[in-house]
């Protein structure tokens, strides 16, 4: 009975993915910038449905897993996300070894040339974006100077015209815009990344704090509050940013209620934190909340006591602006 139920779920996910792909092709046929992006969003959703279909079959044969990886890769190539497609291609190569080349080779006849063309095209375009390529290689997306950030932003905006489905490029755009204090545009960029990968916790987490800075207090309050019921299972990062967003919102009204919500979130986050740096960041948020509760101005003690001496070391002693504490904790989590 359970096996039959699994097959039904498998078929339902496949049908869902199929409809999304067909709709995406329809959007691509319209060929406008807006419909192209909609197609990319649909194709990313289709890829997630393919994964869900496979996950519903606990004993899937290797050929079926390879077929899923191939379809997923196609979704991301057609969904203009070369970095995402590259991850799927890695899975294809691993599964080809399991299936054996005699069976795998005929399965690759369509996807291999398609993927290789997409890969070459991306590499070619990326090679013209010196700033972005350097940022990707060093994994530090935001250059140290504003002028470098502006140059890299131009490159990112240019490459996004060709790859509107790459969440990592929208993320880069968001980081650069935020660095340049263009928070409303940063919000739009982050929203695009979230549309493509709504399941990515870091996108959701950062959107909470950014919403307070980029949107009206009412809009931000509604947006942040909509996440509250998910905090127990959302992960430490989301809890931390929820707490930081509530701390900033508390300055715009409903102080006690919002600080209480921030405390709850920090506590929920500590229960889910898997790394020392995340625990330290959440501890810093808790210490900040204690200071605010006592009506005290935050000081460097928060960082020292949260075992974040390296942050304290680079700051002048004494009272620290609330936004500085929030930004330091947020950047620690983002790193």
């Amino acid at each position: 009975m359970k096996g039959a139920a699994n097959v039904d779920i498998y078929q339902a996910h496949l049908m869902s993915s199929s409809k999304l792909k067909m709709k995406a092709l329809g959007k691509l046929a319209e060929g406008t910038t807006a419909t192209d992006f909609e197609a990319c969003v649909l194709l990313h959703e289709a890829a997630r449905s393919e994964e869900a279909a496979l996950a519903s079959l606990p004993m899937a044969p290797a050929e079926t897993r390879l077929a899923t990886a191939i379809e997923l890769c196609w979704c991301l190539v057609a969904g203009r996300d070369p970095p995402g497609a590259a991850t799927a291609w890695g899975e294809i190569l691993r599964l080809c070894t399991v299936v054996g080349s005699k069976n795998a080779q005929p399965m690759l006849s369509r996807i291999e040339p398609l993927y290789m063309r997409a890969h070459d095209d991306f590499v070619k375009r990326l090679s013209k974006c010196k700033g972005l390529a350097a940022a990707r290689a060093s994994r530090v997306l935001v250059p140290s100077s504003d002028s470098e950030a502006k140059k890299t932003l131009v490159e990112v905006e240019d490459i996004l015209k060709h790859y509107p489905g790459a969440p990592s490029l929208w993320w880069a755009k968001y980081r650069l815009l935020e660095h340049l204090h263009r928070v409303k545009e940063a919000w739009d960029a982050l929203l695009r990344a979230r549309q493509l990968e709504p399941q990515r916790a870091s996108f959701l987490a950062t959107s909470l704090l950014l919403s307070v800075r980029a949107r009206s207090a009412t809009e931000a309050s509604e947006y942040v509050a909509s996440i509250r019921s998910r905090l127990e299972s959302a992960g430490a990062e989301v809890c931390l940013f929820y707490a930081l967003a509530m701390i900033e919102l508390a300055h715009k009204g409903a102080r006690e209620e919002r600080l209480a919500a921030a405390r709850d979130a920090a506590n929920a986050g500590l229960a889910q934190a898997g790394s020392t740096s995340m625990r330290n960041a959440l501890l810093a948020a808790q210490l900040l909340l204690v200071a605010l509760d006592h009506g005290e101005k935050p000081t460097l003690d928060i960082f020292y006591r949260a075992d974040l001496g390296d942050i304290a070391a680079s700051m002048p002693a004494g009272i620290v602006a609330l936004s500085t504490v929030v930004n330091a904790v947020a950047s620690l989590a983002a790193a």
Partner: peptide, 22 residues
């Protein structure tokens, strides 16, 4: 009735999605 549509590998329109015996 077609049960699934695939683009990454043939055949495009599947009317039986039994794993390993499409």
């Amino acid at each position: 009735r077609v049960l699934a549509f695939r683009k990454g590998l043939a055949p495009d329109l599947l009317f039986d999605v039994t794993p390993g015996a499409f």
